[in-house]
Design a protein around this nucleic acid. Structure first.
Length: 305
DNA sequence: ATACCGACCTGTCAGC
DNA sequence: TGCTGACAGGTCGGTA
């Protein structure tokens, strides 16, 4: 389900609801497929950890965790003393959350979540019914719960103690020269190259199709065959589409929601994805659907060359 | 090294 | 009503 804009939207809503909170206890379901770390490792790292940051890396959600004496206490606001280990209030003190206050030293560990196709990370009240396919619940000191739900179980959960990184470059951070270099001498279809997370991280099936439409490039074109002008159009359209989708809260094609359960709105701005047979919004020709690298690919046969 | 293709899962929907 | 098959936002690992 979730590509870069959806994951970014989830991260932003998680920041509003769990940043600075502390995990009190963790429940893990029976199914093991979603777990990339052992249940005991997940419990031992998460319990008593404070969520010091929530970030996105490609399609991964990363929570920076503070563990131990400085992790499971609330930082006292307004009295930050340099290098003092005694600047924390009791756990009962009301939590004041601020991104700046939270990072006073490197994180001790990281909670990594990939939503796969149908994964959801929801912030819920304890009395809300537990959805089918719930695989993990983290109860937080604030009284809220962070729940991971994933019917198809393509999503993954892990805890790591070293800094986490993935291959690929963020499409919203890369410059044009580096972008163009990614596709040089690549014989694979440009659609496949856009989906390759080791090149760009975060672009998925919807945004690859939408970007190629806006750039006027057919998805089957060999990546290396794109002219400099076409690469410039593609560079601009990838970034524009992703930014517009983030602003719209992502695309909710069937069941995607952010951490508060809100649906996105970008599906109403799709020009080709999911529109097979419907008229092109620019020229009226029927939108075609073909399969490339096993994925549905939608394009306008007249507007895209 | 690179690039397809099936496998991994469950749910939904169209067609019969 | 119920069955079957196609399809779904992603990523692996095996194979060519």
């Amino acid at each position: 389900m979730p590509e870069l804009p959806e994951v970014e939207t989830v991260v932003r809503s998680l920041r509003r609801h769990v940043l600075g909170d502390v995990v009190e206890s963790v429940w893990i379901g029976e199914r093991r497929q979603p777990l990339k770390s052992s249940p005991s490792e997940i419990v031992s790292v998460l319990e008593a950890a404070r969520i010091a940051a929530v970030r996105r890396m490609g399609k991964h959600i990363i929570m920076d965790l503070m563990i131990g004496p400085s992790g499971d206490r609330v930082i006292e606001t307004g009295s930050r003393q340099r290098n003092s280990g005694q600047r924390f209030r009791s756990p009962d003190h009301p939590v004041t959350r601020s991104p700046d206050l939270s990072i006073t030293r490197p994180a001790d560990a990281f909670f990594i979540v990939h939503l796969g196709m149908t994964g959801r990370l929801l912030v819920a009240r304890p009395d809300e019914p537990i959805a089918k396919h719930t695989h993990l619940i983290a109860r937080l000191r604030s009284g809220r719960e962070l729940r991971f739900i994933d019917p198809r179980m393509f999503g993954r959960l892990a805890v790591v103690r070293e800094a986490f990184n993935t291959a690929g470059t963020e499409p919203l951070e890369i410059g044009f020269a580096d972008f163009a270099a990614l596709f040089r001498r690549r014989k694979t279809p440009i659609k496949s190259a856009l989906l390759n997370q080791r090149l760009l991280r975060g672009v998925g099936n919807i945004y690859a199709d939408e970007s190629l439409f806006r750039a006027g490039i057919r998805p089957r074109r060999r990546a290396a065959s794109l002219s400099r002008t076409e690469l410039q159009r593609l560079y601009g359209s990838v970034r524009r589409v992703l930014k517009e989708a983030i602003a719209a809260g992502g695309s909710s094609v069937s069941d995607y929601v952010d951490a508060s359960g809100e649906r996105g709105l970008f599906q109403f701005q799709h020009r080709v994805y999911g529109r097979e047979g419907e008229p092109c919004l620019v020229c009226g020709a029927p939108i075609k659907r073909v399969v490339i690298a096993g994925r549905s690919s939608h394009y306008c046969p007249k507007c895209q060359k």
